[in-house]
Design a protein around this nucleic acid. Structure first.
Lengths: 226, 226
DNA sequence: GTCTATATCATGATAGAC
DNA sequence: GTCTATCATGATATAGAC
């Protein structure tokens, strides 16, 4: 069973790398750590993926493919149901960010480990990571921006794009994990409240995001782009 | 002038390290890069700071000291002016996040370089960084949370803390730089619009943050903690 | 296909001359 | 205080045996 063993080794490397990159970052994780913990040979990474950079890309690709396909599937279903009418902003935001957060409960697709990795990687400085992520996200971004433009025809497009950006930031930070949350909590929240899992986080985040997305325009903001 | 030279070397190392950590991250930056670009000897970092970790901490300390003192100074002034009355949420949010963003125009205190570094570091996985930042932020966090609790007496404290967390995330991501912004833009915004500098960013961000902070409570949210 | 062994180089840190 | 020289370690990647 060479095919099975090949896949088993590949998947074990990917799973281990995902966990280590999440906990220590890309630069902070060595191939010796990955192969040691995955109990495969040091040369296996180069054999299966070519390089450490390509390993990282594959770690993201197998999860993002599923996530973004799912996002598009949900958006397609909503738009089909609406039959040409504009969607509600809350539907669009849930299709994008709700689908992401619900991944946390789905261990088959990475679960909380991948979510934290993704949140932490979005601000990673390495050029090749940002280029790669921008490519992976391009299609889904265009679809969701279009949906928001249609749902909010009176809001200048430039404002919608900025607010999408702010929503991404709030969400990334939230899924980057409870350790960073020590900055804010540490104090009035016990661990049970602070670490309530996705089912507590999602409604709170959605409320915040929609409040920001639908906030009245600030004074002095020009009209939309042509 | 041994004292002057000592300070000049120290400051040059700190400035160079700040820029490189911003562009490449902590793990991705070597002491050889830092000392080479700062045109000081390789041993100078260990002599002046002891280790690479302590260098990073000093890079942050000199900026965060000024930033957080300034935040507290603004908050003190607002509270003195209010004379015992609760502040408006917008005043508190501006004292915290506005003071941060206005640092971007102040090259004497790091300017945009430090802002991007800070935004990128808040999701950094290294344990010692997170512990260090949590310590540096503790006092200012407690003061601002208290001010928000007082300004929003009808909102459960746990909700305020969560929303503070979301605001931090949106802001971190926004100041982490326009490169990451390619994820969202790349498309309908020309560079001039997307990269409008802090004077464009601040009102947009404030509107978003306040919209999220003051959003109506979601259904099913329990009462505040005792 | 998988692994051993190794090539080649960069890293953070330090000892000791000046 | 600053520099040179060097240490010990760990990094990614690969050549070649099996």
């Amino acid at each position: 069973m060479p095919e099975n063993r090949r896949n088993a080794t590949r998947e074990r490397i990917l799973d281990t790398a995902e966990t280590l990159f999440m906990a220590q970052g890309y630069e902070g994780t060595s191939m010796r750590q990955i192969t040691g913990q995955a109990q495969v040979n040091l040369a296996a990474v180069n054999y299966h993926f070519g390089s450490k950079e390509e390993l990282l890309q594959e770690v993201f690709r197998r999860r993002l493919k599923w996530l973004n396909d799912e996002r598009l599937r949900v958006l397609d279903a909503l738009e089909a149901e609406a039959g040409g009418h504009a969607l509600k902003p809350s539907q669009i935001v849930d299709a994008f960010f709700g689908t992401l957060l619900r991944m946390a409960g789905d261990r088959k697709h990475g679960g909380p480990v991948f979510l934290r990795l993704l949140g932490r990687t979005l601000t990673e400085p390495s050029e090749f990571i940002r280029t790669f992520l921008a490519d992976e996200y391009r299609e889904v971004m265009e679809r969701f921006k279009s949906a928001l433009f249609k749902a909010l025809p009176d809001v200048p497009r430039v404002e919608i794009v900025w607010r999408f950006h702010f929503m991404l930031g709030a969400t990334s930070y939230a899924i980057a994990g409870t350790d960073t949350l020590r900055l804010v909590t540490d104090w009035h929240l016990d661990a049970a409240e602070a670490d309530g899992g996705p089912e507590r986080l999602l409604p709170r985040l959605m409320t915040f995001l929609l409040g920001g997305l639908r906030a009245p325009l600030p004074a002095g903001t020009g009209p939309g782009l042509p």
